[in-house]
């Protein structure tokens, strides 16, 4: 069995085309906000709130903090939107604000951490993975799910904030190495190496669940 995924060039092209369309739509909205149309910012908020919340939630493992920090990130973006010159995509800029807001929060509260987790929605491939794990561990699915969720979040929080950020952005949010490098402000090589190291660490922490 080949370990490399087959590359579908048409899909890749569609994805990049879609990203370009999204970027231009965002740019139009940003220009409207910059010219004083506050409602245009609502469109951007509705568009990105779930993804931004997801990033911040996975960085903090606390849903109350994540909600608060997501709002804070949007407020920061709104307040400084006139400084956005369009040199990068709007979402890259917004995610950078979100990541920095979350990391500053984590730094401030490094001695006061507790989890407050969202419920895992059992859908599609998730349900299949859970079935597999339940069969493997001969345990009830619900109990397994909560144990897995707890261990997963613990393992994530054991990572340094730099490594966690890269894992969240790549594995959970599905961003490219280049996009992550733009958000985090480092080279693509650094992103790759952080990702590799973080996965090794996660593998060690989650070995009881991994085949």
């Amino acid at each position: 069995m080949s370990l490399t995924k087959p590359v579908d060039t048409s899909v890749a092209f569609d994805a990049s085309e879609e990203k370009a369309t999204v970027a231009s739509t965002d740019q139009v909205l940003v220009e409207r906000v910059q010219s004083g149309d506050v409602a245009a910012f609502d469109v951007l908020v509705r568009k990105y709130r779930e993804r931004l919340y997801g990033i911040i939630y996975n960085l903090t493992s606390n849903r109350e903090d994540a909600a608060d920090l997501t709002q804070e990130a949007f407020i920061k973006a709104f307040s400084s939107i006139n400084r956005f010159r369009g040199n990068s995509a709007f979402f890259t800029w917004l995610y950078r604000i979100g990541v920095n807001t979350a990391l500053s929060h984590l730094k401030r509260n490094r001695f006061r951490r507790f989890f407050s987790l969202e419920h895992i929605q059992e859908e599609g491939s998730n349900a299949q993975v859970l079935e597999t794990l339940a069969a493997k561990h001969k345990s009830e699915k619900g109990a397994l799910l909560s144990e897995l969720q707890e261990k997963l979040n613990e393992a994530m929080q054991k990572l340094s904030s730099k490594h966690r950020t890269v894992v969240v952005l790549f594995e959970i949010e599905g961003l490219s190495h280049q996009e992550i490098a733009d958000i985090v402000g480092c080279s693509v090589g650094t992103v790759r190496s952080r990702l590799h190291y973080a996965k090794q660490q996660l593998q060690a922490d989650l070995k009881q669940f991994i085949d």
Binding site: G54, I120, N126, Q128, V129, L148, M156
Partner: peptide
């Protein structure tokens, strides 16, 4: 038939850790 469980598949589970629809009303 069983899916192989890797770090990636476990991390993908976290994609579905998301709030309910009502959450976004209060968020807004």
């Amino acid at each position: 038939d069983r899916q192989k469980v890797t770090v990636e598949t476990l991390l993908h589970l976290k994609k579905n850790e998301r709030p309910k629809a009502e959450f976004w009303d209060s968020f807004e």
